Simulated assay, not measured.
Amino acid sequence: MVLNPQFSCRLCWLYSCGLVPYQQAWEWQKSLVRDRLSHPEAPETLLLLEHPPVYTLGQGATLEHLKFDPDTAPYELHRTERGGEVTYHCPGQIVGYPILNLKLFQPDLHWYLRQLEEVTIQTLEVYGLRGDRIPGLTGVWVEGYKVAAIGIKVSRWVTMHGFALNVRPDLDGFKQIVPCGIADRPVGRMADWIPDIDPAKVRQTLATTFARVFGLELMRAPHELELLLPH
């Protein structure tokens, strides 16, 4: 599922940020969305990063999928404006936050979710892994193990939040939740099949694949993200 060529060659600023606290990345996203809503024709943006251990809940997520008291959570716990249930982020998991104006692509949330799945499927293919979709569910699985989770928020067709690909994270944190509210499907990581997988190389592959799927030209961002935040 690749974007129609008529939409190709739009510019996309790429921020490759390393390990970033969740709250900081969240503020970056909100600032970028505000700016994009004010400038609909501006370049697209993709943030690729990793987070210290953190749990996040979707806007309507139930606390029943937590296996701990939220008042004494083992790591930070945030309720966000994205869709979906609870998930876990930690080092070794590559997170992508696209800030896109879907009016310039296809203003269709189901289409957008399938495109994000396609980014991870094509990335897995580069490493010899077959990524599968499961009808009725969002995300990507390898041999029945969920390796990519997706949760988005769209405001006036401008996107935030995005996808998370498990490259070589410590999966223990997932044992404290029902990941994405799906109790009968285990979580996996690329390292389960490729023990020496390099997250830095996967990050590069993700960026290249994202640009290809969405028909974008990636460019290094012209300024630091910290400059986007109000003082």
Results as ranks from 00 to 15, higher is better:
residue 39 H to A: 10
residue 183 A to M: 12
residue 39 H to P: 09
residue 211 A to N: 08
residue 19 L to Q: 10
residue 101 N to T: 03
residue 164 A to K: 02
residue 203 R to F: 03
residue 103 K to I: 06
residue 72 T to Q: 13
residue 16 S to G: 10
residue 36 R to D: 03
residue 20 V to A: 10
residue 115 Q to T: 01
residue 25 A to W: 02
residue 60 G to A: 15
residue 158 V to D: 04
residue 88 Y to T: 07
residue 92 G to D: 05
residue 74 P to T: 04
residue 175 K to W: 09
residue 132 D to V: 11
residue 212 R to V: 09
residue 179 P to Q: 12
residue 119 V to C: 05
residue 217 E to Y: 10
residue 71 D to A: 14
residue 57 L to G: 09
residue 18 G to Y: 12
residue 159 T to C: 01
residue 89 H to P: 03
residue 82 R to Y: 03
residue 171 L to W: 00
residue 89 H to F: 07
residue 218 L to A: 14
residue 40 P to H: 07
residue 128 G to Q: 01
residue 151 G to N: 02
residue 109 L to A: 13
residue 209 T to I: 07
residue 27 E to C: 13
residue 53 P to A: 06
residue 188 G to L: 11
residue 44 E to C: 08
residue 15 Y to L: 00
residue 174 F to T: 12
residue 138 T to W: 01
residue 179 P to D: 12
residue 142 V to W: 08
residue 196 D to I: 05
residue 31 S to F: 07
residue 48 L to F: 10
residue 97 Y to C: 11
residue 221 A to W: 04
residue 212 R to S: 14
residue 183 A to F: 15
residue 88 Y to I: 06
residue 63 L to Q: 15
residue 190 M to I: 01
residue 117 E to C: 05
residue 194 I to H: 04
residue 25 A to M: 02
residue 227 L to P: 06
residue 37 L to G: 02
residue 159 T to N: 02
residue 80 T to Q: 03
residue 6 Q to I: 15
residue 152 I to A: 04
residue 192 D to I: 06
residue 199 P to Q: 15
residue 43 P to R: 04
residue 143 E to P: 03
residue 123 T to S: 00
residue 15 Y to T: 01
residue 96 G to R: 00
residue 39 H to K: 14
residue 151 G to Y: 01
residue 146 K to W: 01
